[in-house]
Structures are given as structure tokens and as C-alpha cells.
Amino acid sequence: MRCGYFDAGVCRSCTLLAQPYAAQVDAQAAHVRTVLGDPAGVQWLPTVTSAPSAFRNKAKMVVAGTVDAPTLGILDAHGHGVDLQGCPLYPAALSASFAPLAAFVTRARLVPYDVPTRRGELKHVLVTVSPDGELMVRFVLRSTEALSRLRKHLPSLLADLPRLVVASVNVQPAHAAVLEGEQEITLTEQQTLRMRVNDLDLHLRPRGFFQTNTEVAAALYRQAAAWADEAQVASAWDLYCGVGGFALHLARPGRAVVGVETSPEAVAGAEQTARDAALPGTRFLAGDATAFALAAGDVPDLVVVNPPRRGLGEPLSRWLETSGVPRVLYSSCHAGSLARDLAHMPSLRPVRAQVLDMFPHTHHHEVLTLLERAP
């Protein structure tokens, strides 16, 4: 992939872009194996690769500049805006939304937030595109001061972006490196973006988590389901379930599946998918994954964990070690935290693993590991 921003030195987010893609993939797989200590007896499946460009389903654009000439992109070292509307990581349906959104910033007089002076209102525009080309747009504001203007001009944005189905305002008042706040105000009648993954319509709400790379996420869920089917598990938990990607792909007649997620919005989306798809035996709970596990009585045949970058942490890892759970599917976005967690559960040994290149041209990765309890 060629990128003019990278060549000009104005954006170096894709730190590995100068390397051939095949070399990136090989190095990533070798890195993961090294960090995990290259445990004996593990069957490593071939790495799942990505399209090298136009693979991102979401854009987290910092808004800077002026109300009459806004930039959508990143900030430079001095806190000034660098416009990245032509970034080749985004598919056409996503990148085509940027110019209308920039024009909307001007029309609705949404003053970009200036980091050096701490003045202005609009911090970010967050855009997600579905596999069908529908859009969700979130405006991250410091306050609700501009809300009435945004509502007034929203019809013009909907006319400019006919595939826009969900729009919302997120309020983040703090001057801090925090992307979004707790308050979300939905502006459209439709509240979820339908993300078609394999044969399921997952419903993403504004504050719900979804993997950045839809095609690679689909491969991730397929592999997890295949391993669960091969083991003929009758019950499964999906901890940190998000919108239910793993749980809903694991659902089968006669298999009881429980998903646990802290975000009520994500749980509501997972429940909507389960209803629409008439999936039997699925249940979703809003709560803390560790607290749920520690309070449980019986344990399932399989526990799926997909924690944030920091990993499971010692309490949940040690619970898995002593619980008697025969199998764990661990989906990790950080091999270092995965290695730390594995050290706390030595009875659960890796038997299969696969690296998935969810984030081409970076050192970030996803690795799916099947753990089985040693006899």
C-alpha cells in the first residue's frame, strides 16, 4: 500500500508500512510465538491475513482547524490538526463521508476544539461503516451547547449522506486523552448499525465495541465456532462479549451460551441479534466478567475470553486455573498480557493457536488460542 501522508512524513501511524506486507505477517507471527515462549505441542494455524488497504470499518477522526476550515485526522506534535481525509486505510463508503462531514461542521457552526488553548466544542467525529455501506456517525462534544444547532442541520447531513442511519452526540468535557464520555444522545430514530458478519446481523450501538477489521473478525468467529463444534461443547460462556460476536457464533440447538459484558448498550445489541436470528439457548448479562465467574456455581464446557489490551488480570486467570473448566478460548490483542495470564493458569495448556492480522502495517495483532486442561 502506498500512502502520501506516510511518504511526506505527516502521519506515521502505520509504522510498518515501508516493509512488504508478507514480511510484516511473518514477523508478527514470530513475535507472538516468541512472547508466548513458543510453548511445545501447539498447533499453529496459518496467519489470517487482511486486505492491505481499505480494511478499517471505523474512523476516529480528531477535529481541528477552524469552523470554516476544519481538519479531520490527527494532531501534530504541537496539537494542531493534520487532515487525513484521503487515508487509504478506509474503504470508499467510509472515506466518501468525510467531505460532507467537514461541510456539516461549518454549516452547523461546530467549533473545533483547540487543544493548546483548550477552547472550542467539537473534539472528534467517529464514523463506522457496515458491510452493506450504512454509516453511524458520532460527534464528540465538550458540552451540549451546540446540540440545538446540530439537530437543526441534521436533515441536511442526512440528505448529503443517504446511507447515514445512526447519528449521535457523545459528551466528553474533560481536557484529557479520553476519546469519549459517558453521556450519549441519539439523534436518529434508528439506534443500531447492522453489521453483517458471516450469517449474522450483529447490532452495534454507538458506545458498543466492534472489531476494527470486519473480514478478519469474521474469520476469528468462524475459527472459534469450529473449535467449539469439534469439541462438542454443550455449554459456553463468552466473557467480555461486546455485541456478542463469539457467543452468537457459538449458538447451536442444545448448546447453552451465556455472554457477559459491562456495557448495557452492547448487551442490548447482542440480545437484539439473538431475537432476530431466533438463536436458542443464548442469554446475555450486563456486568463484570470476573465478578460473574467468581460468583458462579457450575462451570461450562468452554469459556471464551476476549479481554481488553490489559488482559484478564490475576483474579480471573487464577479462577480459570482452579475452576475445573476443561477448555478456554482466549482471544487476545496483546501477546504480552496473554503470556502473563497464561502463567497464572498452568493447568490450561495451549494446544492450538492462530494469529490474525487485524491491524496491518502496525505491531498490533490478534491471536486466538485454544487451551485445554492437562489430564
Results as ranks from 00 to 15, higher is better:
residue 5 Y to Q: 00
residue 8 A to M: 04
residue 21 Y to W: 12
residue 22 A to V: 10
residue 25 V to P: 10
residue 31 H to Q: 10
residue 31 H to T: 05
residue 37 G to P: 09
residue 44 W to Y: 08
residue 44 W to P: 05
residue 48 V to A: 07
residue 50 S to I: 11
residue 51 A to S: 14
residue 53 S to E: 13
residue 54 A to K: 07
residue 55 F to A: 01
residue 56 R to L: 02
residue 57 N to M: 08
residue 59 A to Y: 10
residue 66 T to R: 04
residue 73 G to A: 04
residue 74 I to G: 03
residue 75 L to G: 03
residue 76 D to M: 02
residue 80 H to D: 08
residue 82 V to T: 10
residue 82 V to I: 15
residue 83 D to F: 10
residue 84 L to V: 03
residue 84 L to N: 01
residue 86 G to I: 00
residue 88 P to C: 01
residue 97 S to R: 06
residue 100 P to V: 01
residue 102 A to E: 05
residue 103 A to S: 02
residue 103 A to F: 03
residue 103 A to I: 03
residue 105 V to A: 04
residue 106 T to G: 09
residue 107 R to Q: 15
residue 111 V to Y: 00
residue 115 V to G: 00
residue 125 V to E: 02
residue 129 V to A: 02
residue 130 S to F: 12
residue 144 T to P: 01
residue 145 E to W: 03
residue 146 A to M: 11
residue 147 L to E: 15
residue 147 L to Q: 15
residue 148 S to L: 08
residue 149 R to V: 03
residue 152 K to T: 13
residue 155 P to W: 10
residue 157 L to F: 11
residue 157 L to I: 08
residue 158 L to S: 06
residue 166 V to A: 01
residue 168 S to H: 11
residue 174 A to K: 13
residue 179 L to W: 12
residue 180 E to D: 14
residue 180 E to T: 14
residue 188 T to D: 07
residue 189 E to Q: 10
residue 189 E to L: 05
residue 192 T to L: 02
residue 197 V to T: 15
residue 200 L to Y: 14
residue 201 D to M: 04
residue 203 H to Q: 06
residue 206 P to N: 06
residue 206 P to V: 03
residue 211 Q to T: 03
residue 213 N to T: 04
residue 213 N to S: 07
residue 214 T to C: 05
residue 221 Y to I: 01
residue 222 R to Q: 15
residue 223 Q to C: 05
residue 223 Q to A: 13
residue 227 W to C: 00
residue 230 E to S: 13
residue 235 S to D: 02
residue 238 D to Q: 05
residue 249 H to D: 06
residue 251 A to Q: 13
residue 252 R to G: 05
residue 260 V to K: 08
residue 261 E to C: 12
residue 269 G to R: 09
residue 279 L to E: 00
residue 281 G to F: 12
residue 285 L to A: 03
residue 285 L to S: 06
residue 285 L to Y: 04
residue 293 A to D: 04
residue 294 L to K: 15
residue 297 G to C: 00
residue 301 D to P: 11
residue 301 D to G: 15
residue 305 V to L: 12
residue 305 V to D: 12
residue 308 P to W: 12
residue 310 R to W: 09
residue 310 R to P: 04
residue 313 G to W: 13
residue 316 L to H: 12
residue 318 R to Y: 11
residue 320 L to A: 08
residue 325 V to S: 02
residue 325 V to R: 03
residue 326 P to G: 03
residue 328 V to D: 06
residue 334 H to Y: 12
residue 334 H to K: 10
residue 335 A to V: 10
residue 336 G to H: 14
residue 339 A to D: 12
residue 342 L to S: 13
residue 345 M to C: 07
residue 346 P to H: 08
residue 354 Q to F: 05
residue 354 Q to P: 11
residue 364 H to K: 13
residue 365 H to V: 15
residue 367 V to Y: 07
residue 372 E to W: 12
